[in-house]
Amino acid sequence: METQQLEQIAVQVRRDILRMVHAVNSGHPGGSLGCTDLFVALYFDVLRLKRDDQGKVIFDMDGRDEDLFFLSNGHISPVWYSVLARAGYFPVSELSTFRKIDSRLQGHPATAEHLPGIRIASGSLGQGLSAACGAALAKRLNGDDKHVYVLMGDGEQQEGQVWEAASFAPHHKLGNLTAIIDLNHQQIDGPTDLVMNNRDLGEKYRAFGWNVTDMKGNDLADVLRTLHESKNDSEVPTLILMHTEMGYGVDFMMGSHKWHGVAPNDEQLATALNQLPITISDLKDY
């Protein structure tokens, strides 16, 4: 898809995120806004998804012969839900049920409600890279040449399990795996450097045996180029350090941990939406 078209979708997705968290006065807008360009690039360009004759996406849990995406830092569910809906996995109108009772759109992504597009629960941090390793292994065992992507947070790198999986993927030569870290340098309690310094994540992953590359996460052209290139190594997994700004697209939310898990009030929502003019259509329900 043309970069310009993707940029228009990204604006609409950012509107969805803000309106979803505002409607229930809860959720995580900061990381969602920062990762919007990645999700749009993945679902509207990079991922080779299963489709029917009309080109509509089809979901099955096994996900054979298609690229797979896993979200490890599940709290940025608003961006995933918006992009899944906009990509056709479920009706856009369902976004209005986010975090409400009897919804398939749980606060953190879950399979229990059978929401198309989601293959494993996440929210308790540190587990997604392991699951992606397993899915990549299954693809190899099945002779399936498609690719597996997983997104993690940078604060999440403080979880020990991440490093168990970081050892596992190169050891088992999972070249069909691309891991992405949302490097926004923020976590709930403050800047990552102050809460628990991750130091040089790139050097760490290189030492564990990964290909490591940088990507400007809020520059769609760079995102597209880097994601496509990451598929080229057949034996070595690739780690992408995705440099983003938390809250990207809304000036007063950008670059601060304060919007990690806080919803905008009515006035703040109006101000934010003014900075993101409608490109497709808003939900009618709220």
Binding site: Q127, G128, A131, C133, A135, A138, Q161
Partner: peptide, 26 residues
Amino acid sequence: PDRFIQCGISEANMIGVSAGLTIGGK
């Protein structure tokens, strides 16, 4: 041998890898 997966001393990862392997029908 191809269907045996050594995880090393990392049980948390082993559980996660197992969950991932089910995606693909293992």
